[in-house]
Design a protein around this nucleic acid. Structure first.
Length: 271
DNA sequence: CCATATACCTGGCAGC
DNA sequence: TGCTGCCAGGTATATG
């Protein structure tokens, strides 16, 4: 479910309410993608200073380390003063003086990993190879062009890989390529400078718009206050197989790249 | 170094 | 109603 917009929407929906809280307890349920790495009691008593995001990871900075959260494919967070008894898919409760942050994740591809801040912590290698943040000034066009020049894989797969630019997942990769008129199967290193510039702008535009819309709730995404997003209503190609292109009426095509579905308009995206 | 396949896990849905 | 097979928003790891 969660790509950069959904993760950012989630962050915005609880960061200011949890910052300044002190951890009272941490309860872990079924195993997630990776183990926490320490005894949950290590977090007790620490203050939550700030909630940041890096790519699709949420980082809860505390006094003596950082709690790294990932929502995987099916995760969502809920932050409330009190929580009902944990259901079968609730796998983490971070109980604080200001409320409880609960991770709900049916498929359990998500994770909660503790890292002592700074270098040499194995948990931090999760963040080491990440590409540029698309919604910051650090998303430099020249660097983006250089990154793509080194890659012969299809542009869609390079976007998804996350080592050139982070946060673009399966929905927004298809959407950004449609917006920039680029066929998803084109090799990344074959794109001209102007076309890369168009893609660079499209990525920023589509992600920013999706954040404004509260993310995409294809199935069950909700932010930490339980609200759904609306971006899926304005998707141009994602999930619209066979339906008319909003620009030219040509039926939207669905193909498979790297075991993932890709959607595009064969008329608007010819190369 | 790079490109691609695989694995992890559960639920929902189409088709029979 | 129940079964089977397929599909789903991600990404570290193995393999070539």
């Amino acid at each position: 479910m969660p790509e950069l917009p959904e993760v950012e929407v989630t962050r915005l929906s609880f960061a200011s309410r949890i910052e300044g809280a002190r951890v009272l307890a941490l309860h872990m349920g079924k195993p997630l993608r990776w183990p926490l790495g320490v005894a949950p009691s290590v977090l007790v008593g620490q203050n939550i200073l700030r909630v940041r995001r890096r790519g699709k990871y949420l980082l809860l900075d505390m006094d003596r380390g950082v709690l790294i959260l990932h929502l995987g494919m099916s995760g969502s967070l809920n932050f409330a003063a009190t929580q009902p008894e944990a259901g079968k898919h609730d796998h983490m409760d971070l109980v604080t003086t200001l409320g409880t942050l609960r991770l709900h994740d049916p498929r359990r591809f998500g994770a909660a990993v503790w890292s002592e801040s700074e270098r040499d912590d194995p948990a931090l290698k999760l963040l080491r190879k990440l590409g540029m943040e698309p919604l910051t000034d650090g998303f430099d066009l020249k660097l983006f062009q250089q990154g793509l020049k080194k890659r012969s894989a299809p542009i869609k797969q390079v976007l998804l890989a996350g080592d050139v630019v982070v946060g673009v997942g399966n929905i927004y990769a298809s959407e950004a390529l449609f917006m920039s008129g680029i066929k998803p199967t084109v090799k990344a290193d074959k794109l001209s400078g102007p076309r890369v510039a168009k893609l660079h702008a499209a990525i920023r535009q589509v992600l920013a718009r999706a954040v404004e819309q509260g993310g995409s709730s294809l199935k069950d995404f909700v932010n930490a206050q339980g609200n759904t997003g609306y971006f899926q209503l304005e998707a141009a190609v994602y999930g619209r197989t066979g339906m008319p292109c909003r620009t030219c009426e040509t039926p939207i095509k669905q193909i498979v790249q790297g075991q993932r579905s890709t959607f595009y308009c064969p008329t608007c995206q010819q190369r």
